[in-house]
Amino acid sequence: MDILKFAVRKLFGGIPLILGVTFISFLLMVYFGPDLTWEKLGKNPTQQDIMEVRHELGYDQPFVKRYGNYLKQLVTLDFGNSQMTDKKVSTILKETMPVSLHLIIPGFILGNIIAVALALFAAYHRGTWLDKLIMTGSVVGMSISFLIVIIAFQLLFCSSFGLDLFPVRGWEVYNNEGNIIWSQYFKYVTVPTLATVFVALGYNTRFYRAVLVEEMTKDHVRTARAFGHKPASILFKSVLKNAMVPITTRIMFSIPLVVVSGSLLIESYFGIPGVGKITYDAIVAGDQNILKAIVGLTAVLFVIVLLLTDILYRVFDPRVELK
């Protein structure tokens, strides 16, 4: 019951956050974003044509009215049609978000699990050559641009110039009923996942190692060692569990971006119709209806994630009170 009350309070408390995020982002879109008028005009426009397009885009309405419409759209979850294409924003998101989720989830999960495992290993062997090897690998992963990793992996694993094991492009993973064909799924998701894991490992491992090393220097760990607990027991029960608060924070706060933003580069280079590319195209073109949906939903997701994170804190550390 306490959790329920806390959740309701927290959700209401998230409203100012949503209002703030949507207001600032909308302000930026309106006053600093691309003006779509000039993309939509024909080759030889007249002033009348310009006025008509601006009216159609709603640019001639006062800011407050436009922001009010945005909030209404957010509440009703009806963002109208994309301003660049002829599809409803809801249809676009319905089509692309599951694709991005299917694409990103394996890399997200593996990237975090392997990173925690490596970080534990490195922290346990702190200062040895194994630690240095893992940290060097992490720095390499962090240093190489994601774009380069994608191009190199595509060349290496997919192209006829390399190992030619996987498709270069595409996402033929659903049957006519829309269900996943798993064999196809693994065929198309493997290389994007490898690229994602390669890059994510660097950042994640370094972060998790730092957290774990700090935890290992705590008194309770030293005490556990003194009492002769086994290293595995100390690592998992005393170190990892206590380090779960910052680890959870990092993982949970990545979720809204994974769900809503997808991965532009992966989607572009592997020809995957996900939400990342849609978002990028909307930013570049100034498709405000799509941007409003993406920003609004991301803000809502952040509020939900904040709530879940607080609840998870208590799971990992009973001293945390849900206030």
Partner: peptide, 20 residues
């Protein structure tokens, strides 16, 4: 009809032989 702006990806797909 595949829409591929990224030229390296387009080239890899073309030369692979069984895609575009």
């Amino acid at each position: 009809v595949h829409f591929i702006k990224e030229s390296s990806s387009r080239w890899n797909s073309f030369t692979k032989g069984n895609e575009i």
